[in-house]
Simulated assay, not measured.
Amino acid sequence: MPASPKLLDQVCETLRIPHGSTRTERAALDWIKRFILHCDKCHSAEMGTEVFGSLP
């Protein structure tokens, strides 16, 4: 059974639309990476709504 694509790979595929900007893709990936690090790399199933309220 093949492994499912990683989250950031899935985001890249979604953002790669016709006439899409690579700069927008990189910015979105940067924000996602920051959020993952902010949450101490916890799985989304383990997080509650308070995580989203604690963002700067």
Rank of each mutant, 00 (worst) to 15 (best):
M1S: 07
M1V: 08
M1Y: 08
P2G: 02
P2E: 04
P2N: 02
P2Q: 01
A3H: 06
A3Q: 10
A3D: 08
A3C: 04
S4V: 15
P5I: 13
K6F: 05
K6L: 00
L7W: 10
L7F: 03
L8T: 11
L8F: 09
L8I: 12
L8S: 03
D9L: 11
D9M: 00
Q10K: 11
Q10H: 06
Q10A: 08
V11N: 05
V11H: 06
V11K: 02
V11M: 04
C12N: 02
C12H: 00
C12S: 09
E13L: 14
E13G: 04
T14N: 07
L15A: 01
R16H: 01
I17P: 01
P18T: 01
P18R: 03
P18A: 06
H19K: 11
H19A: 04
H19V: 04
H19N: 05
G20D: 09
G20V: 09
S21T: 00
S21K: 02
S21H: 08
S21V: 02
T22Q: 02
T22A: 03
R23A: 01
T24L: 08
T24M: 10
E25C: 07
E25R: 00
E25P: 04
E25V: 07
R26G: 09
R26C: 07
R26D: 06
A27D: 06
A27E: 07
A28I: 04
A28R: 03
A28K: 00
A28Q: 09
A28C: 11
A28F: 05
L29F: 05
L29T: 09
L29C: 05
D30T: 06
W31E: 02
W31P: 02
I32L: 02
I32K: 07
I32M: 02
K33R: 14
K33N: 13
K33W: 04
K33C: 12
R34V: 13
R34K: 14
F35W: 08
F35E: 09
F35S: 14
I36P: 02
L37I: 11
L37R: 11
L37T: 09
H38E: 14
H38R: 13
D40W: 05
D40H: 15
K41T: 13
K41E: 15
C42P: 01
C42V: 14
C42M: 15
H43N: 15
H43T: 14
H43V: 06
H43F: 13
H43G: 14
A45F: 09
A45L: 14
E46P: 12
E46N: 15
M47D: 00
M47P: 05
M47E: 03
M47Y: 00
G48M: 08
G48D: 12
G48S: 07
T49R: 01
T49G: 01
T49S: 14
T49Q: 11
T49F: 12
E50F: 15
E50C: 14
V51P: 00
V51R: 03
F52Y: 13
F52S: 01
F52R: 00
F52N: 05
F52E: 07
G53A: 10
S54W: 08
S54Q: 10
S54F: 13
L55C: 06
L55D: 06
P56C: 13
P56N: 10
P56V: 09
P56R: 04
P56M: 11
